[in-house]
């Protein structure tokens, strides 16, 4: 019986919290985090379209796929600012989380409680 080939793992470190998880080379940084039930990078569309999982890779090699220019400019991308759902690790990675999950509904009129506006 042939077992699947062993997976290659790399260590991903979130610099703000020190959180560390093992991410496979064939999965995205976001998918690896989600698979282990970990938190730290906000999870949005997982397709490079919504921008909430924006991170800055401070150290490490990675492969990447096309991501929305509405959220990552060419200059940012060249500087290692990417969406975690479009990036797979080729080495251990250290990253800072830039994206936010904002409750982006309209602010209520000034007199009302601001609970629905941005946190």
């Amino acid at each position: 019986m042939n077992l699947p080939a062993p997976k290659v793992f790399h260590q991903v470190t979130l610099v703000e919290t020190g959180e560390v998880y093992r991410c496979r080379e064939d999965e995205t940084l976001l998918a690896g985090m989600e698979r282990l039930g970990k938190r730290g990078i906000p999870v949005g569309c997982r397709g490079g379209g919504c921008g909430v999982c924006k991170v800055q890779v401070e150290a490490g090699e990675y492969s990447k796929r096309v991501m929305s220019r509405a959220y990552v400019s060419a200059e940012e991308e060249a500087a290692g600012i990417v969406l975690a759902c479009r990036v797979k690790p080729l080495s251990d990675i250290r990253l800072a989380v830039l994206g936010k999950m904002k409750k982006n509904v309209c602010a209520t009129p000034p007199a009302a409680d601001a609970g629905a506006s941005q946190p």
Partner: peptide, 9 residues
């Protein structure tokens, strides 16, 4: 869920 109000394209 948080995504419903936050994630749009």
């Amino acid at each position: 869920n948080e995504r419903f109000l936050s994630v749009v394209t």
